[in-house]
């Protein structure tokens, strides 16, 4: 049939009309091929999309040298905050600067080759370590650490693990993965290509923030409800129609959630 078709397209209609004599069998095998090729295309593109594409999309770099969080955590008194502290103005210091590390690492103390790299390449040369920060949000994001961890903040005290996972107990630094197009760390945009996140630290997109915030708000508003039936009905309403109850309303007139400026800058 395909031959016929080709001809039909190319020769004048009057001539083609006389040539409609293709065997049935040939037509059926052609349909078989057509179906086969459909599936070949389907499966090939699925493989490309699900397996090859993510590998191409993400690249990885290794950290300047390895760092053992677990060892350091044992040595300090105040947990994560010993090094990742709040400044007096409420801003979060983030990854420690050389000045903080120098207190202990002015000279090479131990056997670890990583420490030696640190001391000789950075401390002595007075260069800041160009750490690659897994949880670094893009420039457009404002994130207030203090609002999330302080007891008085709107979302109550969270501990570091809630968002960052057990990074503080790790003994080595995993490779830093980032998106080649956006240059954003994979920890932000999701380790699972389909966008599923099992742990809160698998993905830190806007929607993830929103989800947690909605839960926090709903939980807070539910606390005031005493009767179990009321609470049950409210739960259903919250799930089905989030943001409808006045108690759950955020400050935004557009989305009834938190206003955009709270996190965007």
């Amino acid at each position: 049939m395909s031959t016929t078709e080709e001809h039909a397209n190319e020769v004048p209609a009057e001539i083609a009309d006389k040539k409609e004599t293709t065997p049935e069998t040939k037509k059926e095998s052609a349909i078989g091929y057509v179906i086969l090729f459909f599936f070949v295309g389907l499966i090939a593109s699925l493989i490309v999309g699900w397996i090859i594409f993510p590998r191409l999309l993400y690249s990885q770099k290794s950290q300047p040298f390895d760092f053992n969080h677990a060892v350091h955590l044992d040595l300090v008194d105040e947990g994560c905050q010993s090094c990742h502290y709040f400044r007096e103005d409420g801003s979060f210091s983030g990854v420690p600067k050389l000045a903080q590390c120098i207190d202990c690492h002015e000279e090479v103390n131990g056997e670890d080759p990583n420490e030696e790299i640190f001391v000789t390449e950075y401390v002595w040369k007075e260069r800041e370590v160009p750490w690659l920060i897994y949880s670094k949000q893009p420039d457009c994001v404002f994130f207030s650490h203090v609002a999330h961890v302080s007891e008085d903040s709107l979302y109550d005290g969270k501990d570091c693990v809630t968002c960052h996972g057990y990074h503080g107990e790790s003994e080595t630094l995993r490779p830093y993965q980032y998106n080649r197009i956006t240059n954003i760390s994979r920890d932000i945009w999701g380790h699972n290509i389909a966008g599923f996140a099992r742990n809160s630290w698998d993905r830190a997109k806007m929607d993830d923030c929103a989800k947690c915030h909605a839960e926090a708000r709903d939980a807070a508003s539910r606390r005031n409800l005493k009767a179990p039936t009321t609470r049950f009905i409210t739960n259903i309403i919250d799930v089905a129609f989030p943001g409808t109850r006045p108690a759950g309303k955020g400050s935004s007139v557009q989305t009834e959630r938190g206003a955009c400026f709270e996190c965007h800058k």
């Binding site: 090729f37 459909f38 295309g41 389907l42 499966i43 090939a44 593109s45 699900w50 594409f53 290509i193």
Partner: peptide, 19 residues
């Protein structure tokens, strides 16, 4: 041609179903 077209349609469908 038609098989090729079919391959393309399958490919398009698969691509649409992939991320």
């Amino acid at each position: 041609r038609r098989s090729f077209l079919s391959f393309l349609i399958g490919g398009a469908a698969g691509t649409a179903l992939s991320p």
